[in-house]
Simulated scan of single mutants.
Amino acid sequence: MAGTYSNQTDILANFAELQRHIAISGPRRSKPSQPKPPGGTKKQLSPTEAAEIIAKYNAGAAMTQLKVEHHMAKRTVAKVLRENGVTIRRLEVSEEFTEREPVAGIIPRGHAPQLPQGH
């Protein structure tokens, strides 16, 4: 099939080796032995850990601090708090921030110019 000056002899030899390997390896499994849960492995939160998160939050800890300490997403911390009847605090802006000089190009909330009506 392959001539003297053809490089198909290497291809045919590789193909034959591949066929032998397939024959030896046996049938292929089409499905994994244990299905993986969708969305990855979920951490089961113990009642003690939930109580600890709630206590720290009520003592003034930020959600971002709690998410790092407990190795979970911020939305998960918020979910734990909401499910246990805790009111989520709004982000408070410090006086230092509100007393700063205005930044060029940024218009403070409530100070935007009014656009003419009827356009």
Rank of each mutant, 00 (worst) to 15 (best):
residue 14 N to W: 04
residue 15 F to E: 12
residue 17 E to G: 14
residue 17 E to W: 13
residue 18 L to E: 11
residue 18 L to V: 02
residue 19 Q to I: 12
residue 20 R to G: 10
residue 23 A to F: 08
residue 23 A to M: 10
residue 23 A to W: 09
residue 24 I to N: 08
residue 24 I to V: 04
residue 25 S to V: 04
residue 26 G to F: 07
residue 26 G to K: 08
residue 29 R to N: 11
residue 29 R to A: 15
residue 31 K to M: 12
residue 33 S to K: 08
residue 33 S to T: 14
residue 34 Q to A: 15
residue 35 P to R: 02
residue 37 P to C: 05
residue 39 G to E: 11
residue 39 G to T: 12
residue 39 G to K: 13
residue 39 G to N: 13
residue 40 G to R: 05
residue 41 T to Y: 09
residue 42 K to E: 05
residue 42 K to Y: 03
residue 43 K to F: 05
residue 43 K to A: 01
residue 44 Q to K: 15
residue 44 Q to F: 12
residue 45 L to W: 15
residue 53 I to D: 00
residue 53 I to L: 06
residue 54 I to R: 08
residue 56 K to Y: 05
residue 57 Y to L: 06
residue 57 Y to A: 05
residue 57 Y to S: 03
residue 59 A to Q: 15
residue 61 A to H: 01
residue 61 A to V: 02
residue 62 A to R: 05
residue 62 A to S: 09
residue 62 A to H: 03
residue 62 A to M: 05
residue 63 M to S: 14
residue 63 M to T: 13
residue 64 T to Q: 08
residue 64 T to I: 01
residue 65 Q to I: 03
residue 65 Q to W: 10
residue 67 K to G: 08
residue 71 H to I: 07
residue 73 A to K: 07
residue 73 A to P: 00
residue 75 R to V: 09
residue 75 R to L: 07
residue 75 R to Y: 06
residue 79 K to W: 10
residue 79 K to F: 10
residue 80 V to H: 01
residue 81 L to H: 00
residue 82 R to H: 06
residue 84 N to W: 14
residue 88 I to W: 13
residue 88 I to M: 15
residue 90 R to M: 05
residue 91 L to S: 12
residue 93 V to M: 10
residue 93 V to N: 06
residue 93 V to A: 11
residue 94 S to Q: 01
residue 95 E to K: 13
residue 100 R to L: 13
residue 100 R to E: 03
residue 101 E to T: 02
residue 104 A to S: 13
residue 106 I to R: 13
residue 106 I to C: 04
residue 108 P to A: 10
